Structures are given as C-alpha cells and as structure tokens.
Simulated scan of single mutants.
Amino acid sequence: MGEVRSQGQAQLGFDGMPRKLVRVTPSKLSTWTDCPRRYRMAYLDRPTPPRGGAWAHSTLGAAVHNALRAFFDLPVDRRTPAAAEKLVHSHWKTEGFSGEQQSDTYRERAAGWVGDYVANADTSIDPIGLERWVSAPAGRIIAEGRVDRIDERGGELVIVDYKTGRHGLHADDARYSQALALYVIAARRTLRKPCTKVELHHLPSGTVSSWEHTEDSLRRHHTRAQEAAEEFELATDTFTAGGDPEILFPPRVGRQCSWCDFRRSCPEGQATGPAAEPWAMLAP
C-alpha cells in the first residue's frame, strides 16, 4: 500500500527532525471519536478518575471470548460443543448482573450460543492467532491491537472478531469497521501474509458478516485513522505544554453518556439523563 510506505521509518517534521509515529489502537480511536473528554480521562489524566462498576454485557463477552480461545487450544478430538459449553461455565463471572438469577440465565444462554457456534463451525482448523497482538508501522501511525482470531485459508489471513451484542450484524458492519481494517493492515505486516477478508461472528444470532477489503478501502480507513491520530496527538501535546483541557478535550454528550465509565466525573454527561443499569445492554 502506498500510504504505508514508511515501515520502520519516522517521517520528518517541519523542523527536519524525525516525527514520532503515533500508536493507534481501535479503542483509542473510538474513544477519541466518541468523546474527547473521555479520551483525556482514560489515557492522560493521572491519577485516572474513578471508573464506574462492571457491565454485565462486558462480563458475558469476556467469558465467551475466553471460552473460545481455550476451546481452540484444545486438541482437535476434544473440541466438542459440550466442551465449549463447559468452558463458558468455567470462565463465567457474575459482575454487573442484577443478581444470581439473571447471571445464571445469561450463563446458560451464553453457553448455548457457544455450543451452537462450534457445532456449526469447522473445529478442525488451527488458527494461527488467538487473542493475537499485531502491530506494524503504517504511514504516520503504528496500527496495533489484539485480534480475537486469525485464520489462514488458502494461503491468506482472515480476521475473525466475535460479537455478543444485542443486535444482529450485516456486511456493512464488517465493511465500515475501522478496527477490523486496522487489524488487516497490522496483521499482513506482522505475519507477512496477504490479508483482505474480515468477519464478524455474532454468536447470539449464529450469523457471520464478512467483507473483502480492497487496497482502496484499506487506504480510506487508514487515512481516517491517521487524521484522528493527528488530532488527539496535537491535543495531547498542547495539553502537556499547559493547554486548557476543557478546550482541548471537550465533552461530546449524547445517549452514550448513560453508560460512560467516567460519568461520575462529568457534570455534562450526568445532565443528559439517568445512568443506564449495568445490565441494560445485554442481548435480549
């Protein structure tokens, strides 16, 4: 790709000195885009402001992800739906649920999703990456992140992302996911194999939404990531030099304020309405 031509090289700034590359993860990008104030609290403020409590949907998602990682670490002859369900139970936690009954209900539901998922999947494959960290220079940024699963099919890499959210997904969700595009850019350089295909595996609905990227579509995602990185890096440098944090990192209020981890430290967010219950985003 033309825009990622400077692998291993820092670009020159206006003063002729090498300009540092900005490390960019999907989490950083989404946090900055959602709310600059939340970005400051999460990545810059020290000590970090107190976060809210656990969310049930995050607890559920972590159990499913951990179970699937452990499942593909098993020998092929032990990769059964029953084994997958048992792994969900062994990785389960109760944080964020309204009580024992709700936790038990969703534990059984999540175990059923995972059991059905592996029953309909090719479990003989050995992924080349499970919770694999990938990182590579790409233009003015270093694209990096942790990928749920990386398969190799026909000599090419496929990025697989597990989802356990409330709503079903479609091809456009895979197509427009900046996170998946960054994983492609980083994985093809980290593992030195072709990579264009991304997949969202939505366990509650048992569906797979996929997209085959082109060099042009990856370039567009990369350009947007670079632009966002330049914005938050400039704001960070100005803040470090003594700039006003309220001007550099203004709150961006909306529905998302009801479930923001830093809500208690943000009067503007609190003013948008009541806080969401910790179990409000569980899949129905």
Rank of each mutant, 00 (worst) to 15 (best):
V4L: 07
V4N: 05
V4F: 03
R5V: 14
S6K: 10
Q7M: 09
Q7H: 10
Q7V: 12
Q11N: 08
R19M: 13
L21S: 14
L21A: 15
V24Q: 03
S27L: 04
S27R: 12
W32A: 05
W32H: 04
T33V: 13
C35S: 06
P36H: 12
P36A: 10
M41Y: 15
A42V: 05
A42Q: 14
D45H: 03
R46S: 15
P47R: 08
P50K: 11
R51V: 11
A54H: 08
W55T: 02
W55V: 03
H57S: 14
S58E: 12
T59N: 05
G61A: 13
A62S: 14
A62E: 11
A63R: 02
A63V: 03
L68N: 09
L68F: 08
A70I: 03
A70V: 00
D73C: 07
D73E: 15
L74C: 01
L74K: 01
V76Y: 01
R78D: 14
P81H: 04
P81C: 10
A82Y: 05
A82D: 15
A83S: 13
A84S: 07
K86I: 01
V88L: 05
V88K: 03
V88I: 13
W92G: 10
W92H: 05
G96I: 05
E100Y: 07
E100C: 04
D104S: 15
T105K: 12
R107N: 12
R109I: 09
V114P: 01
V114Q: 05
D116F: 00
V118I: 01
A119Y: 08
T123A: 04
D126L: 15
G129P: 00
V134M: 12
G139I: 09
G139L: 05
R140Y: 08
I142N: 12
R146N: 14
R146Y: 11
R146S: 11
I150R: 06
D151S: 07
G155M: 08
V160A: 03
T164E: 07
G165T: 12
R166N: 04
L169W: 02
D173H: 14
Y176P: 01
L180K: 05
Y183H: 07
R189I: 03
R192C: 01
V198A: 04
E199L: 06
L200P: 00
H201P: 00
P204N: 06
G206K: 06
G206N: 11
G206P: 07
T207S: 13
T207E: 15
T207M: 06
T207K: 10
V208S: 06
S209R: 05
L218K: 04
R219C: 06
R220C: 01
H221V: 00
H222G: 10
H222T: 10
A225R: 00
Q226D: 00
E227K: 11
A228W: 10
A228N: 13
A229K: 06
E231F: 03
F232C: 10
A235N: 09
T236V: 04
T238S: 08
A241S: 11
D244Y: 09
P245F: 03
I247N: 04
R255Y: 00
R255K: 14
C257Y: 04
D261F: 08
R263Y: 03
R264N: 15
C266L: 02
P267R: 07
E268V: 11
Q270M: 11
A271W: 08
G273E: 06
P274I: 09
P274K: 15
A275E: 13
A275I: 01
A275L: 02
A276F: 02
A283N: 14
P284F: 10
